[in-house]
C-alpha cells in the first residue's frame, strides 16, 4: 500500500545514548551540581548529579540575577545542534519515547498545531510569572519533577509524608495523565508543554546541524513522519522548531544531515567553477 522509503531498521544507538545520558545525569554522585545539564532533569531527584537548567533559570529570575552562564549554555548547545538535546539526552523525553513503544502504532494528534503552548509555558509561566511571583512556578507543575523528585523523596524520607498537600496530589494526577497520554500521543510533554524545548526550538533555524530533504527523490510517503518521535512530516519543514533532531528520519535516503559550515548544496553559487 505504501512505498516506504524507510527500510532500514531503527538503530539502537539513540536508545543506548538516551539511557546512558539518563544514567549519567542521575548517577547518584552529586559532584557536578554546579553544572547545569542541558536537558530537563530535576535536581531534587535523590540521584541527580547535575542541575536542571530550567529550575536554575527560574532561580536566577527569582533572585533578580542575569542568568549569564545559562544563556551561554542554551546558545552554545542550541547553536551547534539545535534541539538535539531533546532527542538524545533528555531523560524525560527518553521516558516518553519508551512509553510510545507500548501503545498503538498509530498515535493521536499527529500535528504541530498546539506547539505554541510550549512557548506560552516558557514565556508566561517560567519567565514572566516566575519573575513576578518570586517563586519557580514551572517547577511547581513540572511532571518530570513529580516523577524524578516528588515520588522518590517521599518514599525515601518518611518525614515528608505528613506534609503532602493538594498540590502534590495534583502533580501526581497530572503525571499519571501525562504517562497515559504518552502512550497514545507521541511525546506530548515535549511537543506541547516543555519550556526547555521552547528555548532550544528557535535554534533549529540557525544551528550548525541541519536536516535536508532531497525533493527530487522524496515521494512524500510519510515514512519519516511515522518514525518521527514528534510526528513531524520532515519533508514539509526539515528545520521546523518542533524537530528534536533525533535523526530517525535520516534512515530515509532522501533525508540527510548537513552541517552548515559545509557549503549549502542548494546554493546557486555552487554552479561557479572553482
Amino acid at each position: 500500500m505504501i512505498a516506504m522509503a524507510i527500510t532500514k531498521r531503527a538503530s539502537a544507538r539513540r536508545t543506548v545514548i538516551q539511557a546512558a545520558s539518563a544514567a549519567i545525569v542521575n548517577s547518584g554522585l552529586p559532584a557536578l551540581k554546579a553544572c547545569p545539564f542541558p536537558g530537563l532533569n530535576c535536581y531534587a531527584c535523590p540521584l541527580a548529579s547535575m542541575a536542571c537548567p530550567m529550575g536554575s533559570l527560574q532561580n536566577f529570575l527569582v533572585l533578580r540575577r542575569v542568568p549569564i552562564a545559562l544563556v551561554g549554555l542554551f546558545a552554545a548547545v542550541g547553536g551547534v545542534v539545535g534541539r538535539a538535546v531533546c532527542g538524545w539526552a533528555c531523560p524525560f523525553g527518553f521516558i516518553q519515547d519508551l512509553l510510545a513503544r507500548i501503545g498503538p502504532r498509530r498515535k493521536l494528534l499527529p500535528t504541530q498545531k498546539g506547539s505554541w503552548m510550549r512557548y506560552a509555558m516558557l514565556i508566561l509561566v517560567a519567565l514572566i510569572a516566575t519573575y513576578a511571583v518570586g517563586a519557580p512556578l514551572f517547577c511547581k507543575i513540572c511532571p518530570a519533577g513529580a516523577l524524578e523528585a516528588g515520588i522518590p523523596q517521599v518514599i525515601l524520607r518518611p518525614g515528608l509524608r505528613s506534609l503532602i498537600g493538594v498540590l502534590f496530589w495534583a502533580k501526581i494526577v497530572s503525571l499519571v495523565l501525562l504517562v497515559a497520554a504518552a502512550i497514545l500521543i507521541k511525546r506530548p510533554f515535549c511537543r506541547f508543554l516543555c519550556p526547555l524545548g521552547a528555548v532550544y526550538s528557535p535554534f533549529n533555524k540557525v544551528s550548525l546541524m541541519r536536516l535536508e530533504v532531497d525533493d527530487t527523490t522524496c515521494t512524500r510517503c510519510d515514512g519519516c513522519k511515522r518514525v518521527c518521535p514528534v510526528d513531524l512530516a520532515v519533508y514539509e519543514h526539515p528545520n521546523s522548531d518542533s524537530c528534536i533532531r533525533c535523526l530517525e528520519c535520516t534512515r530515509c535516503p532522501s533525508v540527510s544531515v548537513t552541517w552548515a559550515h559545509r557549503s549549502a548544496p542548494t546554493s546557486p553559487v555552487r554552479t561557479v567553477e572553482h
Binding site: K33, A44, M50, A51, A146, A149, Q153, I164, K171
Partner: peptide, 12 residues
Amino acid sequence: NARTICLSCMGI
C-alpha cells in the same frame, strides 16, 4: 540552589 530541595517547589 541545586544542593538542597525546595519542598514547596516539589509540590509537597
